[in-house]
């Protein structure tokens, strides 16, 4: 029951999709399975949120180091849910003004919009913006032309970095003869992307595809059962 039923579910679900792809009669089965999958994806989101809060609450109850921050996370989580699910500050949809709950939960000026605009946007975008600083220190400290391979990587990166700005044109303006224009960094970048990059990425893409197909087959044939856990 604990292992056999889920194994059958995985195999049947996977094969239903495969069959639906090839046999028109079974298309409906595939659509139904896909619809369930999409709905279940929301369940997975709830599970993720639930797990997060469970861990934070455990941290708070055991007064582990940093439990105060865990409390901040919990408060923010429930505040966002309360405000968003309650549609605070949301007016009815103009098409249905007599239905109080018909408005858009992210309407400009509403509570959820405020949270999104003034908390989620600055916090998440700055987190990623920080990477610009770390990539700069990595370039300074770790990028060493130690051998042919590393030198190739560095030279390509340099050409692409300059070729993807106006510097790639400006550096060669006025002195490079027309027949050598292909050496201009912007043109070289186009060539690098179209030829060596396409070839290298294509090899990686085919390799990954083979790996994914093999893994999927192992699951569909019941060979890989790691998702069933230990007991």
């Amino acid at each position: 029951m604990k292992r056999f039923v889920p194994l059958v579910i995985a195999i049947v679900a996977g094969f239903v999709l495969l069959i639906a792809n090839f046999i028109p009669y079974a298309e409906g089965w595939g659509l139904t399975a896909q619809e369930w999958f999409n709905i279940l994806a929301v369940g997975a989101m709830v599970l993720g949120g639930g797990n997060l809060i469970k861990l934070q609450l455990m941290k708070i109850s055991s007064k582990k180091a940093g439990w105060g921050y865990a409390a901040v996370t919990v408060v923010c989580f429930f505040a966002a849910i309360f405000i968003g699910m309650g549609k605070f500050g949301v007016h009815p949809n103009e098409l249905y003004p007599n239905y109080a709950w018909s408005g858009y939960y992210l309407e400009e000026g509403s509570g959820m919009w405020w949270i999104y605009q003034h908390m989620i946007v600055p916090l998440t975008s700055t987190m990623f913006a920080m990477l610009a600083f770390y990539v700069a220190t990595a370039a300074f400290r770790a990028f060493r032309a130690k051998n042919t391979e590393a030198t190739l990587l560095l030279v390509t990166a340099g050409i692409v970095l300059l070729g993807r700005t106006y510097a790639g044109v400006w550096l060669f303006e006025g002195w490079l003869p027309d027949w050598l224009l292909w050496l201009r960094f912007d043109n070289l970048t186009v060539w690098i992307m179209d030829v060596p990059n396409t070839a290298g990425t294509r090899a990686i893409t085919i390799g990954i595809a083979l790996g994914v197909v093999a893994t999927s087959l192992r699951i569909l044939l019941g060979v890989d059962r790691s998702y069933l856990g230990q007991d």
Binding site: M45, T73, C76, F78, G84, L123
Partner: peptide, 9 residues
């Protein structure tokens, strides 16, 4: 916290 809450909403 806010991102997780937002995703729920």
């Amino acid at each position: 916290g806010t991102s997780a809450g937002y995703v729920m909403v």
